[in-house]
Design a protein around this nucleic acid. Structure first.
Length: 511
RNA sequence: CGGGCGGUGGCGCAGUCUGGCUAGCGCAUCUGGUUUGGGACCAGAGGGUCGCAGGUUCGAAUCCUGUCCGCCCGACCA
């Protein structure tokens, strides 16, 4: 027996996910992942198993972004998982940033010990680091690829896994091993490198808003939040439903830091040898965590249609074998008609769930997984040449003429996509506050009750000093998420010091 | 990495303090039947050696030591 109140109804609880977001947000997040069958913990500390439903979300993220990368002239390549320790040591700030969380390979084989257990043997001359990011190994390779200004720009991306030995992990948001893409480019001038950095930031922002329906703020990181080894770090920041910020993607202008440490030089048109300018940019499986925390509700996941592994699930309803044959035939022809329609450039994917399970069980299963549309088809619908459609995002249910449903499927999916974005935007606006005094700022970020969801994005002035950042982090666990690129750039007064401020910046608690 | 809590069939838990009958319960699973338009009902069945290793004991899920994994807090998090 649990200690929880036994008031739970004998049948279904009010919400498919327990606890609800309001009751216990972190626990809700984990329950959604479990209920939607997205991922689970593995026997390896901090590492997750991404299950088919979760992995197909990643595949759709990959497919969409990869097309964008190719369309902007990038090519995919693949570099080693292992990085010689000496490579990491080359860039001083880079070492500082990553040394503490590197997994290190020191031996090359296992031998049976006296007790029969395997022990590492064959110590390596030089230890290998499992890549936490690939600037150094790719930089070493680029130094050979780049000789002349004619070799530039060099625009490469790799889809890979990386390992960062984090002390505390959470499925999708921070795992020891995660999947990502890392773009690495080389340019002749700092201006070109900056143009690339911003271009990729914009691709990420567009992707977040258009495909994920997750509104983001584009901005620049302060020096203290910058990527180790970067001259400038750009980011997109999204607000989760607990009002905390999630850094959803980064794009770095690396200046000549890595070209110098990795010796990436080229001869310019004047015949002079000079160091190139590099960039790097990435997004990871963390985006799936962002998708969950942006859209999911107390009944489980809600998948934005553009990234949905399937758009529609068709649920046949029948009592006997005779009806079964008729209903299934109707479902199959409906599925075929839907497949002939296109949404976002892809054929509409509808599956038929003909498992021998009670209707409610099946329905709830798909609700928890977050399929955008559920369609119930029974003898009554067939008689009316109709379908009974339920929207996951709004919960709306209605009988619709079959032809109308089929021909309007793209519009209907787009309407869900639009609604999710609008809803997320409205939530962010409702929890973003312009703040001009220290008192109000501290009140904003202080919970009135324990575990209460509070705070949000505070748009406040800042004198530019790391001391203020440090104070707010220590006092409130609040950090500057970014100096926004768009919006209000009016100078003002820093509420913490009374000193001048160039513009308002985004303060929030962060993941 | 420090502090706290936890690990018992697929999932959620009871049992552990006060060692001792064949380790229970709910859900899920399987079979048969009745059902079926939002998480069905009845009957029956299968499945665990209690995270792992060692120790104490006539006897260990229960006590001790170590260790692994998870959750929360802290530090850390490009």
């Amino acid at each position: 027996m649990s200690n929880k109140p036994a008031a739970a109804p004998a049948k279904a609880p009010k919400t498919a996910i327990s606890p609800t977001r309001a009751e216990d947000y972190p626990e809700w997040y984990q329950q959604v992942i479990k209920a939607a069958d997205l991922a689970e913990n593995s026997p390896v500390r901090g590492c997750m198993v991404i299950k088919p439903w979760g992995y197909s979300l990643w595949e759709n993220i990959q497919r969409t972004l990869d097309a964008e990368f190719k369309a902007t002239g990038h090519q995919n390549a693949y570099f080693p998982l292992f990085i010689p320790k000496s490579f990491i040591e080359k860039e001083a700030q880079h070492v500082d940033g990553f040394a503490k969380e590197c997994a290190v390979v020191t031996h090359s084989r296992l031998e049976a010990g006296p007790d029969g257990k395997l022990v590492p043997a064959g110590e390596l001359e030089e230890a290998l680091i499992v890549r936490p990011t690939s600037e150094t190994i790719i930089g070493a390779t680029f130094s050979k690829w780049v000789q002349s200004y004619r070799d530039l720009p060099l625009l490469i991306n790799q889809w890979a896994n990386v390992v960062r030995w984090e002390m505390r992990t959470r499925l999708f948001l921070r795992t020891a091993e995660f999947l990502w893409q890392e773009g690495h480019t080389v340019h002749a001038t700092t201006e070109e490198a900056m143009e690339e950095t911003v271009k990729m930031l914009n691709i990420y922002a567009d992707f977040a808003e258009n495909a994920m329906a997750m509104p983001v703020i584009k901005g620049i990181k302060t020096a203290s939040e910058r990527f180790p080894g970067a001259d400038e770090t750009f980011c997109i920041e999204a607000m989760m439903q607990d009002r905390k910020a999630l850094q959803a993607g980064t794009s770095h202008h690396l200046g000549q830091n890595f070209s110098k440490s990795c010796d990436i030089k080229f001869q310019n048109e004047q015949g002079e040898l000079q160091h190139a300018y590099t960039t790097s940019w990435g997004v990871s499986t963390r985006l799936i965590g962002g998708m969950i925390m942006t859209h999911a509700d107390d009944d489980g996941m809600i998948v934005p249609p553009k990234l949905a592994p399937q758009h529609v699930v068709i649920l046949p309803i029948y009592r006997d074998d005779a009806a079964r044959a008729e209903v299934l035939a109707y479902c199959k022809s409906l599925q075929k008609e839907l497949a002939a329609q296109k949404f976002d450039g892809r054929p509409v994917i509808a599956t038929i769930d003909d498992r021998d399970l009670p209707g409610g069980t099946k329905s709830w299963g798909w609700i928890k997984k977050g399929v955008p549309l559920r369609v119930e088809v029974g003898p009554k619908d067939i008689a009316n040449n109709a379908v009974f459609v339920a929207r996951r995002d709004t919960g709306e249910k209605a009988g619709i003429a079959r032809a109308e449903f089929v021909s309007g499927i793209a519009d209907r999916l787009q309407s869900i996509q639009d609604n999710l974005l609008a809803r997320a935007k409205a939530f962010r606006e409702a929890n973003t506050k312009v703040i001009d005094t220290k008192e109000e700022f501290y009140a904003f970020f202080t919970a009135k009750k324990e575990n209460e969801i509070h705070g949000g994005f505070a748009m406040a002035h800042w004198n530019g000093s790391p001391e203020v950042e440090k104070m707010l982090k220590e006092d409130l666990k609040v950090t500057i998420r970014c100096i926004p690129l768009d919006g209000d750039k009016t100078p003002g007064i820093c509420p913490f010091t009374g000193e001048p401020s160039k513009q308002r910046v985004v303060f929030a608690k962060a993941y």
